[in-house]
């Protein structure tokens, strides 16, 4: 078993409500898995079970081969966890808090001091080192939370919405930090910010209503988008109706979509029929007619489109699920 995180048939019920419904997956070292899903999808509940905070109703979790239910303390030693909202002891300072975490993690003496210094450098806490945590800004609090999670250089890192509420610079820093650590760890990140998946994850999972709807690399997920394989032509408004009509007439084109861009321009998007590549057809058409196209663009899939497509399908199909 090489997977650092191995989850089989995980299920969690709160009374009659099923928050997590039969989830299985595994994460290997070097993988950064992104949990995507609307609020209330079961992302946080899954993470709480992985880290041993909640007891699953059914299913097994192994962290580095250790059964979380049977040996919770051993499993927790392997994990660094940033809970949602990064809860911290407000009256402590980053210095006393990280010293406490170091003690709990079994770090001692010079070793502990060196490790804390390293982390402080890494997440840049020097300026607020001796201030009570309750007086810190959200960005600094999140950094203290991250520092706490990575202090013992864990093999498994679980981060619940690590960039939530941070400004763009701070988000960038957190993502960089995750990427730096990614090489030898198994990392799980939950988010509802889709750009994050592109930025840091090499594996992504879309979850809604406690089920896995899609699981693959970000590229594979993008391929699920209806925009994947579509081409669009940007052209002056006066030619728009001609272009639309010609595209629509092609047997390779399943449907088109036209939308104005600014005052004078129009973008016409052609979606391919099943198993058809459009690139030659579209460029041939433009050249044949000599249209003054300003741009011919291959549309890549859009993750938000896949996300909406998948998560709203569940909503409609929910009645018989």
């Amino acid at each position: 078993m090489t997977a650092m995180i191995d989850v089989q048939g995980l299920r969690k019920e709160f009374g009659h409500f099923t928050a997590v419904n039969d989830i299985s997956f595994s994460v290997e070292p070097g993988q950064v898995l992104g949990f995507l899903g609307p609020n209330g999808a079961g992302k946080s509940t899954t993470m709480k079970m992985l880290t041993g905070f909640l007891t699953p109703t059914a299913g097994r979790i192994h962290i580095c081969g250790i059964d979380v239910a049977a040996k919770p303390v051993q499993a927790k030693k392997k994990i660094g966890y940033l809970p949602e909202g990064a809860p911290l002891y407000a009256e402590m300072t980053p210095a006393s808090f990280l010293s406490f975490i170091g003690d709990v993690r079994g770090l001692k003496g010079a070793d502990k001091k060196k490790r804390i210094e390293q982390i402080v450098e890494q997440v840049q806490l020097q300026d607020v080192w001796k201030q009570p945590i309750e007086t810190l800004s959200k960005g600094y609090k999140r950094r203290v939370g991250l520092a706490q999670a990575i202090l013992h250089d864990p093999e498994v890192l679980v981060l619940d919405e690590p960039t939530d509420g941070l400004d763009p610079n701070q988000k960038f820093e957190v993502r960089q930090l995750v990427q730096q650590m990614a090489s030898d760890k198994a990392i799980i990140i939950s988010t509802h910010i889709l750009e994050e998946v592109d930025a840091v994850c090499n594996q992504a999972m879309i979850i809604a209503r406690g089920r896995i709807l899609a699981n693959g690399t970000p590229k594979e997920l993008l391929a699920l988008s209806q925009f994947s394989g579509a081409y669009s032509i940007l052209i002056t408004s006066s030619l728009q109706s001609t272009v639309s009509a010609s595209l629509q007439a092609l047997p390779e084109v399943a449907s088109i979509e036209a939308a104005p861009e600014g005052d004078e321009l129009f973008r016409t998007t052609a979606f391919p029929a099943p198993d058809v590549k459009l690139h030659e057809v579209v460029s041939g058409l433009v050249h044949a007619h000599g249209w003054p196209a300003l741009e011919i663009r291959r549309e890549s899939g859009r993750l938000d489109d896949v996300f909406r497509q998948l998560t709203t399908e569940v909503g409609q199909g929910g009645a018989h699920a």
Partner: peptide, 12 residues
């Protein structure tokens, strides 16, 4: 304050 989640996911 939610710190219970922090405390109980430490190896304690």
């Amino acid at each position: 304050s939610g710190t219970i989640e922090l405390l109980l996911t430490l190896p304690v």
